[in-house]
Design a binder for these strands. Structure first.
Length: 1037
RNA sequence: GCCCCGGUGGCGGAAUUGGCAGACGCAAGGGACUUAAAAUCCCUUGGCCCGCAAGGGCCGUGCGGGUUCGAUCCCCGCCCGGGGCACCA
C-alpha cells in the first residue's frame, strides 16, 4: 500500500469538515471548557481576487495553521478563523472589466478561494467565515462609524469620550471657546487646548447661538467633514488617502497621476491619538522594524509655535499674525525671512499690488503641478518661489523680514508657513542663496565641521578665526549647519541664548515665547487625519443624513444597515480633467434610496462610501462572535478571546521587557478601569509587511476608540505580530525587456527552466528567442506565478505545506525552487514506508520499548520540534524530524540485513546515539512509542498523512486534540559527554568523559589525552578553560 | 540623504546568540539493484596543500581593524544587496 496522498487528503478534509473538528467554542456554548487557556491565531484576511492564489499567498496561512494545530494539542482553546476583505477598488474595477455586478464576481472569487484554501488542509473554523461585504457585517462597520461620529477626544483626559459629554462639559462653562480663533492656519479645532484661554475673540459656550454651538460640536467629532487639500485622482474618479499615494505621486492602485485639490471630505481624527499610537507600540511583541515604521509614519516632532506679527497689516486688527511651527525655536534669531505655502489663505491679503501678478502666476503653476512634478523638481534640488511684497516682524529682535511663497513649504504640515533660518536649515540655505536673502549664524558648529565646510579660498586659516568668520559670514561656507551646537548672536534686551547648547536654548526660548504671548511649545505630527471617504460604489455606505438646513446627523442604530442600493451603472465618473467635480456613483442611485423622510423633514443620504480599510479595521473582533445580531461582538466573547491568558508561551524576539510592559499597562489602568489585563488581543497575527503602516495603524486607531468608549477590554488589538517574507521566483525577460511566461522557458538542451534554474552558465530561450534570467517577487506581473493547485496535484498538500515551511525562516523572502520539493516529498514517502509495508500494507511497528539511545534521540527530537513550534522556525523542526527518520530508516534496513552490526552509525545529531538502538525489542519494526510520537510531531505540518498513519496505528479518532508529546530533560543527555579540546582556540582533540564529571576531572582528562600532550609538547600551559557541557580550551605558549 | 534588515559551500539554509562553522534538503559525482529507465538504497561533496595509503597540515562565515582563552555572533571603519521614509520646518 503506497503513500497515496491523492486519496488520503480529500478524505481527511471531508472528515474534518463533517466532524467540525476545528470549530472553536465560545463561553456558554455546549462543551466549552473554561479551564482551557485561549489562543487566538489570525491571518490577515485576503482580498478575493479573480486570479486566485499562487504559492506565495499561503505561506503565512500554513504557518498559522501549524501554530493553531500545535496549540490545540497543547491544550489551548484555539480560535483560527478566515474571511474575506471583499470591498474596495480592486473588486470594483475587476467587476467593471468583467461587466457584471461586483457582488456576483466577489461571491465567485470567494468560492474559488475557499476551495483553494480547503485543499491545503487549513484548520480554519469555517463556520466563522465572514466577508466585509456581508450586510450583517457592514451593518456593524457602520455602527462603529457612528461611534466615531458620536465621540470627541478630550485632550485633558487624553481619551475618547461620547459627544454628549462634550456638550455637558461645554455647557457647564468649564471651557472657553474661541470661535474667532487667532490667525492660525489651518484652524485647529482638533486640539481643544489650542482654544482654551486664548485672549482673542473668546466666548463661553453658552454665549454662542445654537448654530455656532452645533458647528463647534461638529468640528470636535472624531468623524467630521472638512474641506482639506486632498489627493484627487481624476482617472479613478476618487480621492485617496496619503497612504494610498506612491512616492512618485501616483495612485497605489492603477498608477495614475494624483493632484492636490481642496475638497469637502469625511475625515477621521486619528491625529488625536497619535501620541498613544506611538507610546503603546513599546510593549507589543512586534518586529522592531515595523514599530519603527509606524513611529516614522506618525512622525512626532517636538518644537514650538511662534507668532510673527505682520509689519504693515493689509487689514487692521488682531488677525495680522502668521504662526509657524519650528523644531528649532533656538534658531529664532537667525530667521531672516518667512515662507508660506502657495495655498496659504493669507497669501491673497498679503500680496502687494506690485507683486500680485507674480504671486498669482506662481500659485497657478503650483496648482497645476501634480505631486509627481513637484517631487521631481525637489529631487533636482531646485528651489522656486516668489516674494509677496509683504513683511513680518521677527518677534525676538523686531527685525522686518520679507514674506515669500514657495512650494517647498507644504500646506499639510504645521501651519503651512515657516520661519526661514537659512544659516541652519539646508532647504532655507539653498533658497536664500538662490534669491540672495540674508543668512545669519546663530549656532556655532564645532571645529571639525568648520574645517570640513570652510570657504575654499581661506583653507589655511586657523580654527579660531574660522569661528569668527562663520559667525559673521556663514553664507561663505559650503552648507548650512543644521546640527546642534552652541548658540551665538542670539540675545535681545530681555533674553540671551548665547553660549547655551542647543538642548538648553530650546526650553529657554519656548518659555520666553509663552510668557510674552509670542508663541508656545508644541508637538507636531506628520500623520494627517485620515481621509475616510471615497467616490466609489463598492464600499460601505455612510450611515449619515444631510438636512436641507445643512445639519448632518447619524442614522439611528436601529435603522442599520444602510444597504448599498442596487444600481445598473456603478462606474465611477473618471475624467482626464483634474478640476472636474467628483461624482460619486451613489449620487445616481434611485431617489428612494437617496432621500429619507425623518421627523417631518427630507434628508439626503451621504453619497460617498468608506475606503477599503474600514472593513479590515475590526474583522478580528467579528470573528469572535460572527453571528451575533444584537451586538458587533458579545461582551463575554470579546473578554474571553481578547484578554490574555496567563502564562502563555515564551516571549517573541524583541518583546518588551516586563518592566516596560508593566509601565504601559499601569498607564492604561487609568484609561480603562474596567479591564484588568492589558495588551492581550490577538495572540499571533501573521501577514505581509506591506500592511506595516496602513492597515495596522488604522485598526489600532479604531480599537483604541472602542477601548476608550468601553466596548473592548484591551487598548491594543494585536499582541504579537509576525511578518512572513515574500516568495520570490525566477522570471525571464525577452530582448525587449518584457516578461515571458516562466513555465515555458527552456535551456539550450530543451530542459524546462525549472529544473536547471539558478545554475551557472545556463542560457534560456522562450519560443526559440533568448531570454535573460532574473529574480523577483512571485506574481502575475512577472508571469512567474505557480498555483498551489498545480503542486497539490503533483505532490499533495502535505508536501506543499512542508516544502513552504522548509524553504527557510518564515520572515525572510526566499526563492521558490520547484526542483527542491522532491526533498520533503521523499521524506514523507520514507516515513510512510518506515511504518507501512508498501506491498502488503502491513504495519512495521514493534511493540517493545526503545533502547536508551533511541529514546534519547527521540526526546532530543521532541525538544527540537517543540522549540521550533514556539519560535515559528519550522524549517529546523522539519530538519530534526528528517534526521530522526533517516536514523530509523538506516537501522531498520540494517535489521533486515541479517542483523548487521550497528557499527557505522556515526551521523546522528547526538553522537553515538544510534549504535545498537534497534535492539531492545525493535525487531520487526520501530517501537510503537517512537513512531506514534513522530506522527504527532509531524501532524501540525503534514496533517493528512499524520491522521492517516494515526488511524493505521489503530486509533479511532482524529489526533487533532491528542496531547503534544513532552520530553524529559533528564533523557536528553547520555551517560557520557564528548568535549572538543582546543589549544589556543583551535580544535585539536576530542575527549569523552562521564556526564557528571566535574571541571577538574574534565581538565585532567584533557591534559591526559595523547593528542593534547603531543600538541603542547615543548610549550607551557598557561591556563585551561573548561566550559561545562561545552568545551575545553588550553592556552599554551 | 535619513532609518531599518541582511551578506555563511554550486543553491536554499543550520549553528543552543561568545564555545566543535556548514545540521537538514537540493544539485553534482561515484556505486548497488535493473535488459534499460524510473523509483529505491549506499558512498563522496567548503577551498588549498602533503601523503601510495591510513592520516595530517593550512585557509575559510562580504572587506579592514579591535576586544577576548576563544568571534558567523560584540565594538569601530568601509563595501554590497533588500526594504521603508523622503522639501515634515
Amino acid at each position: 500500500m503506497k503513500y497515496d496522498f491523492a486519496s488520503i487528503e480529500p478524505r481527511w478534509q471531508q472528515y474534518w469538515d463533517e466532524q467540525r473538528t476545528f470549530g472553536a467554542l465560545n463561553p456558554g456554548e455546549a462543551g466549552f471548557d473554561p479551564a482551557k487557556p485561549k489562543y487566538y491565531v489570525l491571518d490577515m484576511f485576503p482580498y478575493p481576487s479573480g486570479v486566485g492564489l499562487h504559492v506565495g499567498h499561503p505561506l503565512g496561512y500554513i504557518a498559522t495553521d501549524i501554530v493553531a494545530r500545535y496549540k490545540r494539542m497543547k491544550g489551548f482553546n484555539v480560535l483560527h478563523p478566515m474571511g474575506y476583505d471583499a470591498f474596495g477598488l480592486p473588486a470594483e474595477q475587476f467587476a467593471v472589466e468583467q461587466g457584471v455586478h461586483p457582488r456576483q464576481t466577489t461571491e465567485q472569487n470567494i468560492a474559488n478561494m475557499t476551495r483553494q484554501l480547503k485543499q491545503l488542509g487549513l484548520s480554519y473554523d469555517w463556520d466563522r467565515r465572514i466577508a466585509t461585504t456581508d450586510t450583517d457585517y457592514y451593518k456593524w462597520t457602520q455602527w462603529i462609524f457612528l461611534r466615531l461620529f458620536n465621540s470627541w477626544y478630550d485632550p485633558t483626559q487624553r481619551r475618547v469620550r461620547p459627544i454628549e459629554e462634550l456638550f455637558a462639559v461645554l455647557s457647564s462653562g468649564q471651557l472657553l471657546v474661541g470661535i474667532e480663533s487667532e490667525a492660525v492656519w489651518p484652524p485647529q479645532p482638533e486640539s481643544l487646548d489650542a482654544v482654551i484661554g486664548l485672549p482673542v475673540g473668546t466666548r463661553k459656550f453658552h454665549e454662542l447661538n445654537p448654530d455656532e454651538q452645533r458647528a463647534f460640536i461638529d468640528a470636535q467629532r472624531l468623524a467630521y467633514i472638512d474641506e482639506v487639500p486632498v489627493n484627487w485622482c481624476p482617472q479613478l474618479g476618487t480621492v485617496l488617502a496619503n497612504e494610498e499615494v506612491t512616492n512618485e505621486g501616483r495612485s497605489d492602485r492603477g498608477n495614475y497621476p494624483v493632484y492636490k485639490r481642496p475638497l469637502r471630505q469625511w475625515m477621521l481624527r486619528i491625529t488625536a491619538l497619535a501620541d498613544r499610537l506611538i507610546d503603546d507600540l513599546a510593549p507589543l511583541a512586534w518586529p522592531e522594524p515595523i514599530k519603527q515604521m509606524q513611529r516614522n509614519w506618525i512622525g512626532r516632532s517636538d518644537g514650538a509655535y511662534v507668532h510673527f506679527p505682520l509689519a504693515y497689516g493689509s487689514s487692521s486688527g488682531s488677525d495680522d499674525v502668521i504662526s509657524v511651527f519650528t523644531t528649532r525655536p533656538d534658531t529664532l534669531f537667525g530667521a531672516t525671512y518667512m515662507v508660506l505655502a502657495p495655498e496659504h489663505p493669507l497669501v491673497d491679503a498679503l500680496s502687494t499690488s506690485e507683486q500680485y501678478h507674480a504671486v498669482n502666476e506662481y500659485r497657478r503653476q503650483a496648482a497645476g503641478k501634480s505631486d509627481m512634478d513637484r517631487i521631481a523638481e525637489a529631487g533636482a534640488g531646485a528651489k522656486t518661489g516668489v516674494f509677496t511684497g509683504a513683511h513680518a516682524i521677527n518677534p525676538v529682535n523686531n527685525q522686518k523680514i520679507p514674506i515669500w511663497i514657495a512650494d517647498y513649504v507644504l500646506t499639510g504640515y504645521g501651519t503651512g508657513a515657516i520661519m526661514a533660518v537659512p544659516g541652519h536649515d539646508e532647504r532655507d540655505f539653498a533658497f536664500a542663496r538662490h534669491f540672495r536673502l540674508p543668512i545669519r549664524a546663530v549656532v556655532m558648529p564645532d571645529e571639525a565641521w568648520l574645517k570640513a565646510h570652510q570657504p575654499p579660498e581661506r583653507s589655511d586659516e586657523s580654527g579660531q578665526s574660522l569661528a569668527v568668520w562663520y559667525s559673521e559670514h556663514p553664507e561663505d561656507f559650503a552648507k548650512a549647519f543644521a546640527d546642534e551646537g552652541v548658540a551665538v548672536n542670539s540675545a535681545n534686551d530681555d533674553l540671551s541664548l548665547d553660549d547655551l547648547p542647543t538642548a538648553g536654548a530650546k526650553p529657554l526660548i519656548s518659555q520666553w515665547l509663552e510668557q510674552t504671548g509670542r508663541g508656545r511649545a508644541a508637538v507636531q505630527y506628520k500623520l494627517r487625519d485620515w481621509l475616510f471617504s471615497r467616490q466609489r460604489y463598492w464600499g460601505e455606505p455612510f450611515p449619515i443624513l444631510h438636512g436641507q438646513d445643512g445639519r448632518i446627523i447619524g442614522v439611528e442604530d436601529s435603522e442599520l444597515p444602510v444597504l448599498l442600493p442596487e444600481m445598473d451603472d456603478f462606474r465611477p465618473a473618471a475624467s482626464e480633467d483634474p478640476q472636474a467635480p467628483p461624482q460619486p456613483p451613489l449620487s445616481r442611485a434611485p431617489l428612494a434610496w437617496r432621500q429619507v423622510v425623518k421627523d417631518g423633514q427630507t434628508w439626503t443620504r451621504e453619497f460617498n462610501t468608506m475606503p477599503q480599510w474600514a472593513g479590515s479595521c475590526w474583522y478580528y473582533l467579528r470573528f469572535l462572535d460572527p453571528k451575533n445580531e444584537q451586538r458587533f461582538v458579545s461582551e463575554e466573547a470579546e473578554r474571553y478571546w481578547m484578554v490574555s491568558s496567563k502564562g502563555q508561551g515564551p516571549p517573541a524576539k524583541g518583546q518588551a521587557d516586563a518592566e516596560e510592559r508593566g509601565a504601559i499597562a499601569a498607564k492604561s489602568e487609568i484609561r480603562n478601569p474596567k479591564s484588568e489585563i492589558h495588551f492581550g488581543g490577538v495572540d499571533l497575527y501573521v501577514g505581509g509587511v506591506e500592511h506595516a503602516v496602513l492597515h495596522l495603524l488604522y485598526a489600532r486607531f479604531w480599537h483604541k476608540v472602542l477601548f476608550d468608549l468601553g466596548y473592548v477590554s484591551t487598548p491594543e488589538p494585536f499582541g504579537r505580530l509576525y511578518n512572513q517574507g515574500y516568495i520570490q521566483a525566477y522570471c525571464y525577460r525577452d530582448l525587449r525587456g518584457i516578461a515571458v511566461p516562466a513555465a515555458e522557458v527552456v535551456n539550450a538542451q530543451g530542459q524546462p527552466a525549472s529544473v536547471v534554474q539558478g545554475q551557472k552558465g545556463q542560457q534560456f530561450f522562450y519560443q526559440g528567442q533568448p531570454v535573460t534570467e532574473e529574480y523577483g517577487k512571485m506574481g502575475k506581473g512577472l508571469k512567474n506565478a505557480i498555483a498551489p493547485d498545480e503542486v497539490c496535484g503533483k505532490y499533495g498538500a502535505d508536501t506543499l505545506r512542508l516544502y513552504e515551511m522548509y524553504m527557510g525562516p518564515l520572515d525572510q523572502s526566499k526563492p521558490w525552487a520547484t526542483r527542491d520539493i522532491t526533498g520533503v516529498h521523499r521524506f514523507l514517502q520514507r516515513f510512510w514506508r518506515l511504518l507501512v509495508n508498501d506491498e502488503t500494507g502491513q504495519l512495521r511497528v514493534g511493540e517493545g520499548e526503545p533502547s536508551p539511545e533511541l529514546r534519547r534521540l527521540l526526546h532530543n527530537t521532541i525538544k527540537r520540534v517543540t522549540d521550533a513550534m514556539e519560535t515559528l522556525s519550522f524549517n529546523v523542526g522539519i530538519a530534526a524530524l528528517i534526521e530522526l527518520n533517516n536514523e530509523l530508516v538506516k537501522q531498520h534496513s540494517s535489521d533486515q540485513a541479517a542483523g548487521a552490526a550497528a557499527s557505522g552509525a556515526t551521523s546522528g545529531g547526538t553522537s553515538g546515539a544510534a549504535s545498537g538502538a534497534a535492539s531492545g525489542g525493535a525487531s520487526g519494526g520501530v517501537p510503537r512509542a517512537v513512531v506514534e510520537t513522530m506522527v504527532l510531531l509531524l501532524s501540525p505540518m503534514a496533517p493528512h498523512i499524520a491522521e492517516e498513519l494515526w488511524r493505521l496505528l489503530g486509533h479511532g479518532q482524529s489526533l487533532a486534540y491528542h496531547a503534544w508529546p513532552a520530553y524529559d530533560p533528564a533523557l536528553l543527555l547520555g551517560a557520557s559527554i564528548e568535549y572538543p579540546v582546543q589549544i589556543n582556540g583551535k580544535l585539536k582533540a576530542r575527549i569523552t568523559v562521564a556526564r557528571d564529571a566535574d571541571v577538574a576531572a574534565v581538565e585532567a582528562a584533557a591534559r591526559a589525552d595523547a593528542k593534547v600532550t603531543a600538541a603542547v609538547e615543548g610549550s607551557t600551559i598557561r591556563k585551561v578553560i573548561v566550559v561545562p557541557g561545552r568545551l575545553v580550551n588550553i592556552v599554551a605558549s
